[in-house]
């Protein structure tokens, strides 16, 4: 790893061996051009307002906005379809007894005029 650092330092030294000053004429030209330039709020207006300002992350996020909108819309449409129908309340309890050899059939029907699960 130290070898890597040493090599990096060596390469950086060689690369930085060539360095130039900004030409004075160029600096003057830029300042003159800037004097005629009006500062802008940004290409996309309000989207670039502070406090966020310009950032690559924001530009990337903007690309996902349509996809996110489609997902939300799809969720709104599909949730009612995929939701299970509500369970119907118990309307009655039927209990049947049959005594086959005597041909007797007893049917108890409990209607919800009393609480079904309440213990006495």
């Amino acid at each position: 790893m130290s070898d890597e650092r040493r090599l990096d330092a060596k390469i950086a030294g060689l690369v930085r061996n060539v360095h130039e000053q900004v030409p004075a004429a160029l600096e003057e030209r830029i300042r003159a051009a800037a004097a005629e330039t009006r500062p802008s709020a940004g290409r996309l207006g309000w989207l670039w307002l502070r406090p966020g300002g310009f950032s690559r992350r924001r530009t990337r996020m903007l690309a996902f906005v349509p996809a996110a909108a489609v997902c939300v819309l799809a969720a709104f449409l599909l949730i009612p379809i995929l939701k299970k129908p509500p369970v119907s309340p118990i309307s009655e309890i039927r209990t049947e007894f049959e005594i086959a050899d005597k041909n007797i059939k007893i049917v108890f029907i409990q209607k919800p005029d009393f609480s079904l699960f309440q213990e006495e």
Partner: peptide, 14 residues
Amino acid sequence: SVLQAFRYFRTFRR
């Protein structure tokens, strides 16, 4: 590059 930076300096985050 410098002019672009100057133009959009308002969008630069504090």
